[in-house]
């Protein structure tokens, strides 16, 4: 029975810390820097380190939570279906921008990282940097990166994107909330979408659409591109 108590402890701890982090997030006015995911992950890492709790066991014990990422990813078809009507007004520019955005966001991060850090696993995990986490982790698995590292990189891309993209679009003279939302959605996925909704419903809807499209385009395109091979060559 010991194993099942450990499993329940792992699941309760994960959910409890997440709920507490969410409370803190609301209290601190929803700053991306104290996002519940960030706080939860770092708190749990601290607990694991403190109690010498092996990550492989924690991972096994919390599999029930991770498993739900599968149906959750499939469920993204619903917002995509509902937001598809937004695209009608300017389908071609949006699709081209999303395609180029997805490829450049992945390629520039992975290649720059290969040259600069020379770390193969980091650079391969950089490929899914701008992809919404559930899809990004799967892409990372397919291209030979680490899903955990990808989750971390995606988290930081979301935070940094929410911080800098609004500044960039402002400097570039973007006043159309649809365009701003789309740019934030492609580069900063869920974090950016949450932030875009605070600007306006239109910005949020376009960000959500951009996030889904980027995820799908990346999943179909990035694994068949020779990006991973280039990264491996550059880091050797």
């Amino acid at each position: 029975m010991n194993t099942s108590v450990e499993m329940l402890l792992a699941i309760s701890l994960t959910m409890g810390i997440y709920l507490a982090a969410e409370k803190l997030y609301v209290r601190l006015k929803r700053s991306a820097l104290v996002h519940p995911v960030v706080i939860s992950i770092f708190s749990l890492m601290g607990i694991l380190a403190l109690f010498d709790w092996d990550y492989a066991r924690y991972q096994q014990d919390t599999y029930l939570i991770s498993f739900l990422l599968g149906p959750a990813t499939v469920a993204l078809a619903i917002p995509l279906y509902e937001q598809m009507s937004l695209i009608k007004q300017m389908a071609l520019p949006l699709m081209v921008a999303c395609l180029v955005g997805a490829v450049v966001a992945a390629g520039s991060a992975a290649l720059l990282s290969a040259v600069w850090t020379g770390d193969e696993i980091i650079s391969l995990s950089m490929i899914s940097k701008s992809v919404t986490t559930p899809i990004g982790m799967d892409i990372s698995r397919v291209v030979g990166g680490s899903p955990s590292l990808a989750a971390g990189i995606i988290m930081f891309a979301g935070m940094l994107g929410s911080l800098f993209v609004p500044y960039a679009t402002k400097r570039l003279g973007v006043k159309n909330d649809a365009i701003h939302g789309f740019a934030v959605g492609v580069t900063a996925h869920g974090f950016g979408t949450a932030q875009a909704f605070e600007r306006s419903v239109q910005a949020g809807a376009f960000a959500g659409l951009a996030m889904s499209l980027t995820g799908i385009i990346s999943a179909f395109l990035l694994p068949v591109m020779p990006l991973a091979d280039w990264v491996v060559q550059l880091t050797r």
């Binding site: 997440y18 890492m45 694991l48 924690y58 939570i65 469920a75 989750a151």
Partner: peptide, 23 residues
């Protein structure tokens, strides 16, 4: 059920994120 999963999606990848500890 879909919106329940999507709304709480961030909780679902916490266990994977904790794997950063190995890196």
């Amino acid at each position: 059920p879909s919106s329940l999963l999507i709304r709480n999606m961030t909780l679902l990848f916490v266990p994977a994120g904790v794997g950063l500890i190995n890196h």
